[in-house]
Write a protein that binds this DNA or RNA. Sequence first.
DNA 1: TGCATTTACTATGCGCGCTTACTATCTCCC
DNA 2: GGGAGATAGTAAGCGCGCATAGTAAATGCA
Lengths: 173, 173
Amino acid sequence: MSARGAQGSDDAAAGEGRGPHGVRRLASGFAHAEESPGLLLWQVTNRWQAAQRAALKPYELTHVQFVLLASLSWLQAEGPVTQKRLADHASTDPMMTSQVLRTLESRGLVERMPHPHDGRARALAVTAEGRALADQAVAVVEACDAAFFAALGDGVGAFARAMRVLKGAAQGY
Amino acid sequence: MSARGAQGSDDAAAGEGRGPHGVRRLASGFAHAEESPGLLLWQVTNRWQAAQRAALKPYELTHVQFVLLASLSWLQAEGPVTQKRLADHASTDPMMTSQVLRTLESRGLVERMPHPHDGRARALAVTAEGRALADQAVAVVEACDAAFFAALGDGVGAFARAMRVLKGAAQGY
DNA sequence: TGCATTTACTATGCGCGCTTACTATCTCCC
DNA sequence: GGGAGATAGTAAGCGCGCATAGTAAATGCA
């Protein structure tokens, strides 16, 4: 990429070691947006999504489509799965879940049948084709994930733990 | 990658500490999507964005609009800022940067003048109103950020370090 | 039993994040 | 000087992520 050097110099000089937990400054006129944990989180996730997108491209699946397909494969062993249950498990928005599932249905990867006991709900099922695709995709996604987090080395365990803490803390929103 | 025996009967039990870097399994029939680092990263970021959205709502700013506005405030002390320079600094997509800046321009928060030395480029500037809004927003965003990462306690330093490692590693995409 | 509340799902709309394709300008190099 | 390639920016379009609002069916409670 282009001006890595120039940017790196002023960024690093200004942003480094300000305080124990990233105390940043709000000067009289402008903010030092810089590298807050949240900003880093956002930027890294964007990169991660780009990596996932690239890995899933051969299968014509988006990241969310893959997550829902794989989650459904996992869940459906325990009986009929509703859209809400799937959305809860995957932490996806119910509205988006509905929309993505209809896309997957139109591609013949899942089925959305009426629920046996609840007239409002749908009973979801992965088709044979969907299952086969998910099996392939899982492999490349896990390889992609491993490559992405390889830079952390042994630190990936601590990282995942921190993520679970944050996820749990943010639950109460 | 590593072929492993059948795993897991249930979510929580099965997902815990499998190996140094999250070796998960692809069983005969279904994937154990579970809690991979990447999935956690994605879910946590969605929560963080929701928190930011809520914090910025009173100012009628989205997260990206805020980032670009604040970044521009920070950058423009060093001379004329082009859209590309801003996009590089904020790690945002150039296309989206263009679009968001025009939104900010229509609200009178930034100006997009012709660049003095480059006929292709734009010289960006924050208006007085934009600067005032950014100053207010920075405060609430930082408070929001602090609250979000408070659950990590002292671990936030290690977390930010890990994020920088991942960001650097993902640079080579 | 009858009615209010809750719940599962869907329609619409906005903004992000990115892809592809295009114009206009700048820069390099002959 | 002049052409080739790189670079700054924009147009159109797709899918996620969510807010708002609405329908229909299930549940709770008198």
